[in-house]
Design a protein around this nucleic acid. Structure first.
Length: 496
RNA sequence: GGGGUGUUAGCUCAGUAGGCAGAGCAGCUGACUUUUAAUCAGCGGGUCACAGGUUCGAUCCCUGUACACCCCA
């Protein structure tokens, strides 16, 4: 019999004993204080003799035990932090003290007593009563090194959360970031909405969808790759400023910056253009830096990133030239030359791909990862922007921008294409690409065209990748570090 | 999809020119009324990821598979 099983068997035996004497999973303990609150409230309390004693009831997970004969110390951890318990045989009584000695690290307990300070000055509860509230049958990871194995941290995130303060703080930060964004949008008069996650036709982004099936209707549905088309239908309907924070699903590879489901905020504003959203994005990002980090200087994975002042801004072509001195402007604008260049750069180009598509490929491969400072890129080709408004001066480019930090695309926004006939033509173009084998190309969405034909006001739209933003703001190297339960390959469940 | 690295006790990690598998923590027994990685004495705990191959003998060498991490596409 392995020791792992031994430890579980011992705990099961203890639980069996508890079942005989009482209900082992009581739910009538009510705490009066949180550990972290006590620490901050009593940071300067002296607990001198004459003072009125402060009685508290605390509960949480037993994280350590130091048994010394007739007295013991222990730490419990709740949602706010840890506090030390001091247990004495003559205070608890023989029976209760012996019961405590049977508790295991990992058990959930409730304790009541008076606050005091130990010789070393640590705030401590002098326990008068303690109860086991939940027996833990499996041992926790080791107390000193904690849990470091990345696979276990992701698959059993609860253990990571119990053991690692850093993990807890990342997800607290994530919640604060999303709350901040939501309040920012509401304060700018945006209405929060929820649109379908299951789409009859996948649309709104160039991406491969997941397919599911509705039994009663006997029809295939697609998990959404973006909420874009529905949100713009709401603008047609007169909700002139809307936003949605929710999951998108893309059936693509996984990496440190891609999870099959990821969180995006999309938002639309009538009577605004992409330049307005560049300004709005900068304002939002700066305010997030201040609210999360308290500074516009952030360190990301050892690189200082400066969010102060106005963010950098280049045209896409200019950025290619700036970061790749070997490439000339003429090469990027000549069909023949750019294909040779792409070949030289080992970029695969499809036979139906035009100038714009190849420019985009070169940009993605040879510029994106170099955009470390917060940077807006504009001037994207219409060919790769099937939902964007055409630029008035240069019809081959769109009124679109993307926002990059630390070499990562964080946001994508544009003046919306509200010309229904142009949009129908762009969908036709996408269908041509799909027939040529491009699995990411869009479908023709007649419903959406119909909505546009009713009149979409001039509108700006944008999507912000929340996970990537959280990565940068929390200095996390992988998207798995900012998603509570990242997608993992199937694995055998933990054996007993 | 390609390349690299890894998988040894519940956890964190050693290790073996190829010859009975190691530590710390956790666990168990005992001592201990201000400890905090408590301490002291003793004890138990392993399909060395999985499947093949080479070998007298494989945790170690070879091949494949699974899972994970990193890099590239």
């Amino acid at each position: 019999m392995s020791e792992e099983v031994d430890q579980i068997v011992q705990r099961r035996n203890k639980l069996a004993m508890l079942r005989e004497s009482s209900s082992p999973f009581p739910n009538d303990f009510r705490r009066t204080a949180f550990a972290g609150d006590l620490q901050s409230q009593h940071a300067d309390t002296g607990f001198s003799e004459g003072q009125d004693p402060i009685r508290v009831k605390v509960s949480g997970r037993l994280m350590s035990r130091r048994l010394m004969g007739k007295a013991s110390f222990s730490h419990i951890q709740d949602a706010t932090g840890q506090v030390q318990l001091f247990l004495q045989k003559n205070q608890l009584g023989e029976a209760e003290y012996e019961q405590f000695r049977d508790y295991d690290v990992g058990d959930i307990v409730g304790a009541e007593g008076e606050l005091f300070r130990t010789r070393t000055g640590e705030l401590t509860v002098r326990v008068e009563q303690i109860r086991l509230l939940t027996k833990a049958l499996r041992p926790l990871p080791e107390k000193f090194h904690g849990l470091t194995d990345p696979e276990t941290r992701y698959r059993q995130r609860y253990l990571d959360l119990v053991m690692n303060e850093g993990t807890r703080s990342v997800f607290h930060a994530r919640a604060a970031i999303i709350q901040h964004i939501r309040e920012f949008m509401i304060s700018h008069r945006y209405l929060e909405v929820e649109t379908p996650m299951m789409h009859p036709i996948p649309g709104g982004a160039v991406a491969r969808p997941f397919i599911t099936h509705h039994n009663a209707l006997d029809m295939d549905l697609y998990l959404r790759v973006a909420p874009e088309l529905y949100l713009k239908k709401l603008v047609v309907g007169g909700f002139e400023r809307v936003f949605e924070i929710n999951r998108n699903f893309r059936n693509e590879g996984m990496s440190t910056r891609h999870n099959p489901e990821f969180t995006m905020m999309e938002f639309y504003c009538a009577y605004a253009d992409y330049n307005d959203f560049i300004d709005l994005t900068q304002e939002l990002v700066k305010s997030l830096c201040q609210s999360v980090a308290g500074s516009e200087q952030l360190a990301y994975q050892g690189t200082e990133i400066d969010f102060s002042g106005s963010f950098e801004r280049y045209g896409m072509i200019e950025s290619i030239l700036k970061f790749n001195p070997d490439i000339s402007r003429n090469m990027l604008h000549d069909e023949q030359a750019i294909r040779e260049l792409a070949d030289h750069l080992k970029i695969q180009v499809g036979p139906k791909d035009g100038l714009g598509k190849v420019q985009m490929e070169i940009f993605e491969k040879h510029v994106e990862h170099k955009l470390i400072k917060p940077t807006f890129i504009t001037g994207y080709p219409v060919e790769v922007s099937p939902l964007s408004r055409r630029n008035d001066e240069q019809p081959e480019i769109s009124d679109r921008f993307e926002f990059f930090v630390a070499g990562r695309e964080i946001a994508n926004g544009f003046s919306e294409l509200n010309d229904a006939e142009d949009q129908a033509g762009r969908f036709q173009d996408q269908m041509g690409k799909k027939e040529a084998g491009d699995q990411e190309a869009m479908h023709f969405d007649a419903d959406y065209i119909c909505a546009l034909e009713h009149g979409l006001p001039p509108t700006a739209g944008e999507g912000i990748g929340i996970d990537r933003l959280v990565m940068i703001l929390t200095d996390s190297p992988s998207i798995r570090d900012v998603v509570l339960f990242p997608h993992m390959r199937h694995q055998q469940p933990p054996a007993e």
